[in-house]
Simulated assay, not measured.
Amino acid sequence: MGKLSEVDVNHKFETKKEYKEELKKYQLELLHLQRQFHEKGIPLIVVFEGWDAAGKGGAIRRFTEKIDPRGFQVHAVSAPNVIEARYHYLWRFWNKLPAKGQIGIFDRSWYGRVLVERVEKLATEEEWKRAYREINEFEKVLADGGALIVKFWLHISKQEQLERFEERKNNPFKHWKLTEEDWRNREKWDEYEQAVDEMLEKTDKPHASWHIVGGNYKWHARVMVLKTIVKAMEARLHTEK
């Protein structure tokens, strides 16, 4: 698993027509694969991490808009509430895991322990360093239990993030997406990048691999997310035969 600094974030489609054709192709394939996973009772867990304004919401929307809405749940993960904070940090994720044949989508996830909690010092150094082992064991338990796990880091350049922040600030329909916390996180870009690189290195496993998607061009990123999920689902079904 390479470092973020080595990722090309500028792949793109030349025309909107090409994007629409590819999007439709993979959305149709996902619909068929969803049915097969349901019939075989295979749970699918998809984790989305990435920079603020990297396009996680847009990718999730294209992933889910053509599949059966009865077969998936999206979990938007934020800071733990008062009750959740009383337990081990993985506790609050167990009851959000998908049932057999269902899809669970996490818009941010248990990786907060080694990202925001690390950088913002919400977890001690001992806690976040121990979390690499805990997370790997957690995901191994899920994989051994039959789940397919697909993890994404959506990567954009620092300049692209700034332009998206400014666009959100000036767009009344998107202003709600931008918070003071986003600006504060941006000031710690280098610290977060170091944390992400270490996370990718320590938690990229055969049973739960990371996929870094360059996202300066949203159309390309969305299609790459769908294509990656399709390929992972097809590979899993091939092993089921």
Rank of each mutant, 00 (worst) to 15 (best):
A59M: 12
K24D: 13
L44D: 05
T124A: 05
I83W: 08
I135W: 11
V230I: 09
Q27C: 05
T239R: 14
Y111R: 09
K100W: 01
E180S: 11
G55T: 11
V116A: 07
E234R: 14
K227I: 08
E163W: 02
Q27T: 12
K20V: 05
L148A: 00
F37H: 03
G50D: 01
R86G: 10
R130V: 05
E84Q: 09
F13G: 12
Q73S: 06
V223K: 03
F93A: 04
Q102H: 07
V119H: 12
H155I: 02
P69V: 04
N171D: 15
E6F: 08
N216R: 06
K169L: 15
K140G: 00
V223R: 02
G214T: 06
K17Q: 15
E240T: 06
K158I: 03
F13W: 13
V141W: 00
I67A: 07
L122Y: 12
N171V: 01
V196T: 01
R186A: 05
A195P: 01
V141R: 00
F106W: 12
R186H: 14
E191V: 01
V77A: 02
M1D: 02
W51V: 00
W128C: 05
I83H: 13
V230H: 09
Y26R: 10
Q36C: 11
K205E: 11
G104A: 14
M224I: 02
D8L: 14
D52E: 13
Q36A: 14
G215V: 04
G2S: 07
H11C: 07
V150I: 11
G101P: 07
E18V: 04
A79H: 09
A53K: 14
H238A: 07
K12H: 06
Y26G: 07
L28F: 02
F138N: 09
L226R: 04
R92C: 15
K20H: 08
D68R: 08
H75V: 11
K129F: 00
G41A: 12
I45C: 05
E22C: 13
E240P: 06
G55P: 00
E193W: 02
P206S: 13
Y89G: 13
K188I: 03
V7T: 14
A76K: 07
L237C: 08
L115P: 07
W128K: 03
K218M: 14
N136T: 15
H38L: 14
L237M: 08
R186N: 13
W183L: 15
A85D: 13
E39L: 15
T203W: 00
A232W: 08
L4Y: 00
R168F: 11
R130A: 09
K24C: 10
A147L: 03
V230M: 06
H88I: 10
P80C: 13
V223P: 11
Y111C: 10
E191P: 08
V47L: 12
G58K: 05
L90N: 06
E240H: 04
L178H: 09
E181N: 14
V150A: 11
Y19H: 14
K205D: 07
R118L: 08
V196W: 03
K218N: 10
P206R: 15
S109C: 01
Y26H: 15
R184L: 06
W91E: 15
